[in-house]
Amino acid sequence: MDTGMQDISKTSKILVGIVLMILGFLMILPFLWMFLSSFKTSTEISLSQSFWPKHWTIDNYENLFTNGSFGIYIKNTLIITMASFIGLFLNAMAGYGFAKFDFKGRKFLFMAVLATMMIPGQVTMIPVYLILNQMQLTNTLLGIVLPGLVGAFGIFLFRQFMSNIPDSIVEAARLDGAGEWYIFFHLILPISKPVLAVQGILTFIGGWNAFLWPLIIANDQKYYTLSVGLQLLQGQHTSDYGLQMAGSSFMVIPIVIIFVIFQKYILQGFNIQMDK
């Protein structure tokens, strides 16, 4: 009886595995095709529909940097991503404040922060643009970074996680002689590692993929990000599919690698959100 049950669960496991494998393969196929095509010559792409490149070439990638300005785009994207990590840090501090300090108007402020989550980004886009314009920050990197620096969702996630840290840990540290900064950096941040990791990854993905806002704010090519630049490839070289494939691969691969490495934390992060 026992072994029979085990057999059933084993076969069903294998079955589910096979189905998932097929679905997974179907999902990954376009990406794989994109990646492989980026190594084909333009003529090969337009003439044949082969999956595997006949003549491997990295001309497309070279082209991105020599004819296109991908070097600049990467630099911009990296700067924006770094800057959004400063935002992550600010979110963590705000979350800590809401979680562990009792100050006047805390509830109201927190509700106000949450309320901003209800407003779609498209609604605030024009007002924010106008404000930045007044501040003469349009067409600057700062203008790209500033509006997205802190976000309600990040603050909310940090607050939820940090309110689960027992008050007594903070109090014990105070009695041990630790100042508030020390407590934040040496206790709260290390303890919050899981949520930091999740937020870090989400922040990286967000910064790396940033498209619409940079497109609106930056008029000058020298402030374009990767995704904006990628979109540019379409207009400038309509027929050059090889180049587009190379650009797209270039954008997607880092994200895939990061996801593979940190998927444990990403899943954990969804758990944190669902726990609440």
């Binding site: 007594s168 840990i169 109090e171 014990a172 290390p190």
Partner: peptide
């Protein structure tokens, strides 16, 4: 403290 308040990390 009652819940020990050890630093978990």
């Amino acid at each position: 403290f009652q819940n020990y308040a050890l630093y978990p990390h």
